[in-house]
Each structure stands twice: as C-alpha cells, then as structure tokens.
Amino acid sequence: MKHYDWQGYNCAYDRIDPPTGEPSGSPLLLIHPIGVGLSRWFWTRFINAWHESGQRNVIYNPDLLGCGESDLPRVAYHPDDWGQQLQKLVTDIIQEPVVIVTQGALFPVALSCAELFPEQVKAIALSGPPAWRLMTNPTQPQQQNVAWNLFDTPLGAAFYQYARRRKFLASFSERQLFGDPADIDDNWLDRLQADSAKAATRHAVFAFLSGFWRQDYQAAIESLTCPTLAVFGKQASSVTKGYSESAEKRLAEYLEHLPHGEGCLISGRNVLPYEATDAFVNVVRPFVDALT
C-alpha cells in the first residue's frame, strides 16, 4: 500500500505490476463502488484475473476518500471531490494517460475525471452503470441536504451499525447485487464487515445515499471524447425504486448517447468484476488492447 496527500488528506492506493516481465500498455485506474464496507479490495479478483490472463498493464487501485485506508473525514462527498482526489494521483504519480475502469454508480466520478484531466483519460470501461434515467434525473439539492442532515445524526450512526450486520449484508447482496446467491461467499461478507468496522466510513456511504451524485449527466456523457465501453449483466437491476428496465434497454440507451461508445451484456447482475470476474475481464481485454 502507498499513500499520497490531497488537500491535507491521506489517500491510500496500490500499484500492482504484472507478476513477471516488463509492464506494457496503458495503466488501469480502478474506481471502486461506494457502500457499506466497500473499498479497493472490491477489485482484488479482477486484478488477479487480469494479470493471469496475460495482460501486462500496471494497475492503480485507490481507496476513495472516506473509504478503506484513506482518511475518513465527515464530509458530504460529491463526485467532483473524488475526481479531484484522482486527478492528483494521475497527474503527480501516474503521469501518463490511464484507462479508467469504474463500477456501478461511480460513473459520475469517471465523468468528473474526464472533465478535470481529459488529456490523461485514454478510455473508460463501465461495469453496470446506473439506469439512463437515473443518470439524467437529478435529485433536488434541498432533498439531498435533508437526507444528509438526517443521516448525520446519532440515528444515522445507529442505522450504520444495523446495516453492517452480516445478516443484513447477506440479504441486501442477494436482493440487490448478485445474480446468483451462491456467489455471496464468506470473503464478500467478511470484507464488508471488516471494512465497515470503522464508524467513520459511514460518511461516504451516507453522502452516496443522500444522492449528491444524482445530477443530470446527459451533456457530460454526450461530450465524452474518449472510447467508452459499457458492460451490463444480463440480470441488471436498479437499487433505486422505480427504475426497472431490461439490460438490453439499458445498453441501448447508453449506446445512443455515448459518442464513442460500445457495449455488451455478460452473465451476472450488478457487481460484475466480483460475481462474473472472468467474463468481465474477457470483454474489457480486447477493448483495452485495441487502444494501443
């Protein structure tokens, strides 16, 4: 694990080189999802499978601020906060264009990166991004602030302790994340519980649940100049109520608006790099190889 400073905060990340030989190709920059106990460990299976497949890209795997082993300030995080954190990592440490691989509703962070340092974002690969209507239908700032102020109370702290119980995590994972309950293994639940043991990790989760990421991103998406790959699980679903449509429709809507987009459906539901690792690697590999 390595660290760097951004605005006085300590930010943790891993640099993973291929196990043998010299690195080649563009570095990958991974953006993990936000949720109870989630941090950069989410990508471990993907990283191992990527290098086992013969790919030689260096991989940078950061903990976003408020998660994992980065500092955990009491902040109402917005996508641009994390985008600026990653800008420091790319411009000062990586110092070359990267391929961003992002999970789920952290697509807005990748969009922030593409706006903040476009010349150093070579391409973006999306794992299960939100339904198109979620990406274009913002919540009102007043509603976001009311939710944050409610979460930022002793009641919110108590709810977080409830939400990190193993039974709740298993139930939520089965209802909302995994296509096959058999894929919800001890490693998944153990890591969620371990990483949520620090009570201050709740701030990033509550900022996410408050909807600070919910903006209208249509113009930003239609302005992307880099190649973009959208990968959906065939069983894709929305955690947010009222946003139900087929995976085929989700993919079609993204491809309609991504100026340099391509996409596909694979097995799995909403956490493809974990539940369908090999299938996800197999579709991202040719996308990345075609960039060089």
Rank of each mutant, 00 (worst) to 15 (best):
W148D: 09
N149A: 10
L150C: 02
F151W: 14
D152I: 01
D152F: 02
T153K: 11
T153N: 13
L155G: 13
G156H: 05
A158V: 06
Q161N: 15
R164T: 04
R165W: 01
R166C: 04
R166K: 12
F168M: 01
S171E: 08
S173V: 03
E174G: 00
E174Y: 03
F178G: 01
G179S: 11
P181R: 12
P181C: 14
A182D: 14
A182Y: 04
I184Q: 05
I184S: 04
D185N: 15
D185R: 06
D186N: 14
L189K: 03
D190V: 00
L192E: 05
A194K: 12
A194D: 06
D195T: 05
D195F: 10
A197M: 08
A199W: 08
T201V: 10
H203V: 04
H203Y: 15
V205H: 00
A207V: 03
L209A: 15
S210A: 14
G211Y: 05
G211Q: 08
F212D: 02
R214V: 00
E222G: 07
S223M: 10
S223C: 12
S223D: 13
L224S: 10
T225G: 15
C226E: 01
C226I: 02
P227L: 12
T228S: 13
T228Y: 10
T228I: 09
L229I: 04
L229C: 07
A230W: 07
A230P: 12
A230H: 05
F232R: 06
G233Y: 03
K234L: 07
K234P: 00
A236T: 09
V239N: 00
T240S: 12
K241W: 05
K241L: 14
Y243S: 02
Y243P: 00
S244C: 01
S244L: 00
E245L: 12
E245S: 12
A247T: 10
E248I: 00
K249W: 00
K249I: 11
R250V: 02
L251W: 12
L251G: 09
A252E: 15
E253F: 00
E253L: 11
Y254A: 04
Y254H: 08
Y254K: 07
H257Y: 05
L258E: 05
G261M: 07
G261R: 03
G263I: 08
C264H: 03
C264R: 09
I266T: 11
I266S: 10
G268S: 05
R269W: 10
N270I: 13
N270T: 15
V271T: 10
L272E: 07
L272Q: 06
